[in-house]
Design a binder for these strands. Structure first.
Lengths: 154, 154
DNA sequence: TATTGTTATACTCTATAACTATA
DNA sequence: TATAGTTATAGAGTATAACAATA
């Protein structure tokens, strides 16, 4: 539609290996703090805003209800989150991050940011800010907006 | 190290869902042309520069030697690539894309680009070019550069 | 009957190791 | 013996479906 610049590659083809490498860089940091990737995602989602149901939490991090149960068990046993039954509706378990969980989250995040800063430091300044801005914008787009019309939809 | 802008999220945390959605957008296009995601990656790698060994091809697209065999079988049966034994060393199979393969690749790519252009059209111009520029730069970084020192390395 | 959390089953990908044919 | 390609086996990750408790 607009301009193709001749030598462009598919966005996904460029971003996927990058993401894979970024995750590879995070894994040792996560392991050093005893949390899994999904566990870190849960701590991020829970920090600042406790969730009322596990299903809501799962959806907010793009996971399945059944998938995060083991993760929540680990986090709870490690004392990083609390899972208390709701007195009003005893089916649901109220989720909240603990002080220790917040500490772990911050430690992991600052290590991850340090590595990202190292990479981004090589990018000239106006481009770097623009990249982060656009990344935020695109990652905030709902799935339907990105997928478009093709989807078969169940 | 540099500036944290207060409200930043992890790069991987932002990029991973985006990539997942971009791939979800590509799948129907690929299916419509009868190629798999790995098959499309192979066509992209083979277009312009034929490869001498399957192992080299696999490495160039970040896959395993054993993983792409089924993909190559499908592509060959569909007439999109050619796999001819090397007369000089009959262990190796020379790989090359066919004219039909090039046509399919182009059709798929233009459909994918059309969708990406739709998304990028919403981004103000200077930011858009900067985003593509930085994406290219970061995706070209070797894994070791991104992962850093932590890795246990076998 | 519907919903929350859980468990159990199956399916997809991927990784590792064994096998063949050439060298 | 070493290497290119192939096949077979096993493991991780994920999705789907059945289940128990509560509403």
């Amino acid at each position: 539609m607009t301009d193709h610049e001749g030598e462009r590659r598919d966005l996904a083809a460029m971003l996927q290996p990058l993401v894979r490498n970024l995750i590879a860089a995070e894994l040792p940091v996560l392991a050093a703090h005893g949390v899994s990737m999904w566990g870190y995602a849960v701590l991020n989602a829970l920090d600042g805003e406790p969730m009322r149901t596990q299903a809501a939490l799962a959806q907010s991090i793009g996971a399945d209800k059944t998938r995060i149960i083991g993760t929540l068990d680990e986090l709870q046993e490690a004392g990083l989150i609390e899972r208390t039954p709701d007195p009003d509706d005893r089916r649901v378990r109220l989720l909240a991050i603990t002080a220790k969980g917040r500490r772990v989250r911050r430690a992991v995040q600052s290590a991850i940011w340090a590595n990202e800063d190292r990479l981004l430091a090589a990018i000239p300044e106006p481009d770097r800010a623009a990249f982060l801005r656009v990344t935020r914008t695109l990652s905030a787009l709902p799935r339907e907006e990105i997928v478009g019309s093709h989807e078969p939809k169940a």
